[in-house]
Write a protein that binds this DNA or RNA. Structure first.
Lengths: 192, 192
DNA sequence: TAGGCAACCTAACGTTCGTTAGCAAATTTT
DNA sequence: AAAATTTGCTAACGAACGTTAGGTTGCCTA
């Protein structure tokens, strides 16, 4: 089941892999061209600038993350269930596209204005979704948390290292990883 | 209580701040010189190369982290107590030097060989300290964890975002942060 | 007071960078 | 068959890069 990619998508995909491994700044257009088997100047038949690639990856992934948690959310469920669903959705996106996720998580700071500010606003809105769940959990007496912002950042931080090691052929699949992380974050390490 | 810094230390400190904010590759020697109020060439009276700065920061921080968890470790304590002590020590180092920590955590991949490999070996040895505690906790029936490596990386990942927001004048001090994180990781979010 | 050294300078090196201009071939669309 | 689009090329641009060479100044010490 090979998906046919346009040349532009090929460039984006190859660039994503390089951005993940060496970082945006340390990846030259000549590196990218070399990887594609063409000349650097040829890339400019398809894209306007190096940063355009970064922008496309960052905002496409932002969309993916939003769609995933929106679809997974069931407003009538308990806070614990909603949090577990959000964690699972987040992990699904992370594992389905580890390279783009790495770029999304680490390289966004090389965006120029106004994209940089726009990206941060999106990220904040995404985190707000989690904060809202935590708030609900606190109000319902389900969660005991010192600070909701603190809790959300800890949770997301605990999830966002997956891209560094996840391999589709590894011993844990995305669902198992999500389940283990949700259990750890909700119940802790301690035997109960 | 102003600490007097040698010029070399000043360069290292200023470079660390720039490396944190823009990344190693996106920071030029002319940027650094500008920040110091001198010419780029003048920096080479004090250091041998741009990478030397990165090496010094990375390996100095590695040392700091090792010393902190070694000092904090009490072998006779329970696994929970040992883990809490390790988390506290780790957070103390992170908060005491947020800029150098950011470089240590993110910029090490720009080290050239053999320093790159040496760094990874050190990091693995550091993580092994945590793995050992987790193993002990599992054996003693204290912890319930799907995979010890998985647990350690989740813990460290949850800790290592602190440098992005911690400010000494903030409402939580290092001890409170460490305590909150240890509670969250050991007991989970759920009210018990 | 002479020597040494720390600190910084100007000038420049060779290289790499992102990008543009202008053109050619192949493929697809009309 | 003609026209338009896609995909690539060579050549080159100006700018920025890390770094070196060689010199000047001012302070500290013998």
């Amino acid at each position: 089941m090979e998906v046919i990619l346009s040349r532009k998508e090929q460039i984006e995909q190859t660039a994503t892999a390089l951005f993940k491994n060496r970082g945006f700044s340390a990846t030259s257009m000549r590196d990218l061209a070399n990887q594609l088997g063409i000349e650097a100047a040829s890339i400019y038949s398809h894209i306007k600038s190096k940063e355009e690639i970064l922008q496309r990856v960052c905002f496409r992934m932002a969309n993916e993350f939003f769609e995933a948690i929106d679809q997974a959310d069931v407003h009538t469920a308990s806070a614990s269930e909603r949090l577990q669903a959000a964690i699972t959705a987040h992990v699904q996106v992370l594992t389905k596209n580890t390279e783009a996720s790495a770029v999304f998580l680490h390289e966004w700071r090389h965006l120029s204005e106004p994209h940089h500010a726009e990206f941060l606003a999106l990220r904040n809105r995404y985190e707000e979704h989690f904060r809202e769940i935590i708030r609900e959990g606190i109000k319902a007496g389900e969660f005991k948390v010192p600070d909701e912002k603190f809790a959300v950042l800890t949770i997301l931080s605990a999830l966002n290292w997956i891209h560094t090691w996840y391999k589709p052929e590894g011993k844990m699949n995305a669902e198992e990883i999500a389940a283990n992380l949700a259990t750890m974050l909700l119940n802790g390490l301690k035997q109960t």
